Amino acid sequence: MGYRILVDENTSPRVAETLRGRGHDAIHIHDALKEGADDRSISKYAHEHRYVILTHDDDFLLPEYRKDIAIFYYSDDTLTSYEIADRVDQVTQYVPDPSNLPAITNLGEWEG
Rank of each mutant, 00 (worst) to 15 (best):
Y3I: 01
A32R: 09
D8T: 02
I104N: 05
D59A: 03
I42Y: 11
S99L: 03
T105D: 01
V91L: 01
H47D: 06
S75A: 15
P102V: 04
Q93M: 13
H24S: 05
L101Q: 01
I84P: 05
A103M: 11
P102F: 03
P96W: 04
E35C: 09
Y3K: 01
H47C: 05
G21A: 09
S41T: 13
H49E: 11
R50P: 01
R87Y: 06
E111W: 15
N10C: 09
D31F: 05
P98D: 00
E9I: 07
Y45W: 15
D38T: 08
L33D: 12
D97M: 03
D57R: 11
I69Q: 03
L19R: 03
I84T: 09
D86A: 06
I5N: 03
M1A: 08
T92Q: 07
K44C: 07
H28E: 12
Y73L: 13
R50Y: 06
L61Q: 12
R50S: 12
L101F: 00
N106R: 14
T78E: 11
A70Q: 07
A46Q: 04
S43Q: 12
Y3C: 02
D25E: 14
V15M: 05
S41N: 14
H24I: 08
V15Y: 01
D68H: 07
G36H: 10
G21N: 14
D76C: 10
Y65D: 08
E48H: 06
R87C: 09
D39L: 14
H49F: 07
D25W: 12
E48L: 09
D39C: 13
G2V: 06
D97P: 02
M1N: 05
E83A: 15
D8L: 00
L6R: 01
Y82A: 13
F60Q: 02
I27Q: 10
E35Q: 15
E83N: 11
A32H: 07
A16S: 13
M1T: 06
E48Y: 02
Y65T: 07
F72M: 10
V91K: 00
D77R: 14
D58V: 09
M1H: 05
A85E: 07
R66S: 10
S99P: 02
A16M: 11
D77V: 11
E83K: 14
K44Y: 10
V52L: 01
L101P: 02
K44R: 14
P98Q: 00
E64A: 11
T78Q: 10
H30V: 13
S99Q: 07
D97G: 00
